[in-house]
Amino acid sequence: MQVRDAVSHDSPALRDVARRSLEASYPLDQHTIAAAVDEWYAEERLAERLAHDEQLLLVVEEDGQVVGFADAEQTGDSTAELYWLHVDPSFRAESYGERLFTGVQERFTERGVPNLLGRVLAVNDSGGAFYERHGMEQVGQEPVDIDGTEYAQEIYAAAEGETRAVDVDGDTFYIDHTATERGSLGQFHLVYAEEDGNHYGYWCANCESLANAMDAMGRIQCDGCGNSRKPTRWDAAYL
């Protein structure tokens, strides 16, 4: 078993593994799966992504065959997100997923990025259970539009976070300073309605205000200063 960085000529293998994994784990139609896989893991697109330092794609091989890969990105000064962890269904009885997850954590820690968030569609029960086995807990849920159908996407983070209470119009909210996402003008921090509660929205560090309005693509824009968070991977522009 070998874990290594992906290279552009891994494109056919990544597309094949992603397609098999999505078909086995998600109730998505063939058109949606094929369009997303072709867009994100086409050789030219893959080469562009690998040229950016924020991107991280790790593959795991067995006897020279790619049997799984992890797709992640640094989204804040101290935070990265694991978007996808795909393992060919024929190899899921092994520890390939575990090795990939550990590899992602180690790579970002080496880069000085200690906090990892995980995203998974709520319809994939095994995905959420995987994160929980690794000491993470669900901290939020966001709607995401996939080819015209809205799904719930769960966000997972380390069970122990560093929060700070802030008063907004007489209500108390809790800002998690260990979980941030990059905006166009500054960082967004996850916000909870209760100290140990569910995800409520985001705190705009640029103008220090609460932003909790989100569209179905996962875009957030701060009404105070216009700071915006990019859409999720399932933006229609990618399909």
Rank of each mutant, 00 (worst) to 15 (best):
L14P: 05
L50P: 15
E39W: 12
C207D: 15
E181P: 04
K230G: 07
A36D: 10
S126Q: 15
T75M: 10
D196T: 15
W203Q: 13
L28V: 12
E73M: 06
T178G: 08
G148W: 07
G170V: 06
G148L: 10
F173M: 00
G97Y: 01
N212P: 07
V123L: 04
V120I: 14
C222D: 02
T178K: 06
D38R: 08
Y96V: 05
T79V: 04
A24Q: 04
A42C: 06
E142R: 13
Y156I: 14
C225L: 08
T232N: 11
D16V: 14
H177N: 12
V59C: 14
G97M: 10
D29G: 14
V17M: 03
A158Q: 13
V7W: 00
P27G: 03
T180P: 00
G161D: 09
S78W: 06
E132S: 07
E132Y: 02
D77N: 13
E43G: 10
Y41K: 02
E23I: 08
V37R: 09
R45Q: 10
Y200D: 09
G128C: 03
Y96M: 01
H189C: 11
G97T: 06
Q65T: 14
R119Q: 11
E162W: 02
G226S: 10
V59T: 07
G170T: 06
